[in-house]
Amino acid sequence: MYDFNYHKPGSVDDAIKALRKASDGKFVAGGMTMLPTMKHRLASPSDVIDLGGIKELLGITVKGDTITIGAMTTHAAVAASKDVQRLLPALAKLAGNIGDPAVRNRGTIGGSIANNDPAADYPAAVIALGATINTSKGEIDGDEFFTGMFETALAEDELIISVSFTKPKAAAYMKFENPASRYAIVGVFLAKTNDGVRIGITGATPCAHRGMRLEEALNKEFSTAAVDKVIMPVDKMNADIHASAEYRAHLVKVMTQRAVEACK
C-alpha cells in the first residue's frame, strides 16, 4: 500500500477535525476491509484517521427495550455481550458468525455499516430491526442509511457514534454463507416488530434492502407456504462465480422460510 499520514485522535471532535484538514482523509475502524483495500491500491488516502483510541465509540448500553452499541464495538464483543444475547439473540448470533475469530476481534459494527459491503451481515439487521444510526451530525433511520453499493447516507465528515436497536417480538438471521470467506451469498434477517414483519436482505443485490414482497405476504399469513407463493424478481439479483441470479432469488425465499421457522 502507499504510505499515508497516520492520526490517532482521542475524541470524535478531534477525529473530524483531522479528517477535514486532510486532503483525502479516511477513517479506519477495525481495518478488516480498509487495509486489504489499501493493499490492493483500490484506496490510497493521504491521511488515515484511526478511531481505535476514542473511548466514546465503545461499549454497549441498555435503556428499557433499546440496546445501543458503540461504533467501535467488535463483532466478538457484540457476540459475547450478555445484554445483546438477552435482548437480541439473533444479533449476537449474526455477530458471532462474521468472518472468523481473528476477524471478529478487530472488525466493528460501525466499520461494517459505514462500508456497506453488499455481502456484509449487519446491514440486514439494521434494516429489519429499523435501527437508528447515531452519528456526529444527528440520527439516520436504518431504512434510509444504505443508499447503494458501498454507499451510505453519511456525509464525508460524518462519523457513526453508535447504533440503537429496539427489541423485537422475535427475530432470526439466516445466512447462506460463502464457505471460504463467510460472507453472505444471501442473508435474510426477519424481525417481528410492533409494525409487523420486517425483512432485511443482504448479499442478494448490490445493496442491502427491505424485502417488501416477502413482508407483505408474511403480514397476511406468517408461514413458509406464504413465502412459497412470492415471486422474487431475478433481474436485480447479483450473479457471480458463487451463485447465479436465479439461485440467489431462490435462496432469498429459502433463507426467509428458515427464519420464519425459527420465529414461530
Binding site: Y6, G31, L35, P36, D50, P101, V103, N105, R106
Partner: peptide
C-alpha cells in the same frame, strides 16, 4: 486476543 497481523498496522 487473536488477530491477523497482516491486517493490522
Amino acid at each position: 486476543k487473536s488477530v491477523k497481523a497482516c491486517s493490522m498496522l
